[in-house]
Amino acid sequence: MHFAGVGFNASRHAGAAFTNCTFKRCTFFDARFTDCKLVGSLFRQCTYTLFEVSGGDWSFVGLPGADLRQAGFDGVRMREADPTAARLEKATVTGCDLSGAILHGAKLTGADLRASDPSSLDPLTVEFKGATITLEQAATLATTMGWHVR
């Protein structure tokens, strides 16, 4: 399915499936997705304000260059998602499975990343100054950089 120029304003989606969909120039103002499946979907030139995602499967989702500042993702499966160069400043990305995600060039400054899988985050290609992480995540990142944690 292809959505172009659609306003998903103040929409609520629970348990819905938008698999392999394309969203182009859509508006997600005060949109909420709860336990939804968006596997393989692609978002291009969309706007996100007061955007919240809780649970669900967003694996293989394309969000290249998305402006997701202050968005909320909690407990979302995002395996091999592609938020390349996405703006996630002050976003909440907690308890998310980001294994294999392509985070190259993403901006995570001030983001809350607690309990998310940081194993695919390359500290040399991602901005994350002031991000909140756990001690366990810090050890994972240090190991990723080749440091020996004891």
Rank of each mutant, 00 (worst) to 15 (best):
S59T: 10
A142E: 04
F3I: 05
T84I: 15
R77H: 14
L113R: 00
D30Q: 07
L141N: 11
A138V: 05
I133H: 05
D97F: 01
A106G: 01
G105L: 06
C26M: 12
M145I: 06
W58I: 05
C96W: 02
F29L: 08
V93H: 00
R25H: 13
V93Y: 00
N9Y: 01
R77Y: 14
P64D: 12
T125A: 07
L98H: 01
E136R: 14
S120F: 08
A138E: 10
L88P: 02
C36S: 07
G95R: 06
W58C: 04
F60W: 14
R77A: 15
Y48N: 01
T94R: 07
A139N: 09
G5D: 09
L88N: 01
Q137D: 06
A31R: 04
A71I: 10
S59Q: 08
Y48V: 00
V6L: 05
T140P: 03
D74F: 15
L113K: 00
A142S: 07
V61G: 04
R79H: 14
L141A: 10
F29W: 08
E127K: 13
S41D: 12
S54K: 04
A115Y: 11
P64F: 13
F60P: 00
H148N: 14
T19V: 09
L135T: 12
E89P: 02
F73T: 09
A17V: 06
F128R: 12
I133K: 08
T49D: 15
T144S: 06
Q45T: 13
F28N: 01
V126I: 09
H104L: 12
L108M: 11
A31Y: 05
R150D: 06
A91G: 04
T134N: 02
G75S: 03
S99G: 14
T109Y: 04
S116W: 03
L88D: 00
G56T: 04
S59C: 10
N9S: 03
R32V: 12
N20E: 07
G62P: 01
V93W: 02
T125M: 08
S59R: 07
H2Q: 10
S99I: 09
E52A: 12
D117I: 00
D35I: 02
G110H: 14
T132F: 08
D30M: 06
L38E: 00
C46T: 07
Q70S: 12
P83C: 15
G55P: 15
C26K: 13
F43D: 03
D57C: 08
T109P: 00
T109D: 12
A81F: 03
L141H: 10
P118Q: 01
S99H: 15
A106P: 00
R79Y: 12
A16G: 03
E52F: 10
T84F: 11
C46N: 11
H104S: 13
T19L: 06
W147C: 12
A16N: 09
G65E: 13
H104R: 11
S99R: 15
K129G: 13
R79C: 15
S116G: 05
A81Q: 14
A66E: 11
S59K: 05
A17H: 08
T84H: 11
L124D: 04
K24C: 09
Q45D: 15
S120N: 13
L103F: 11
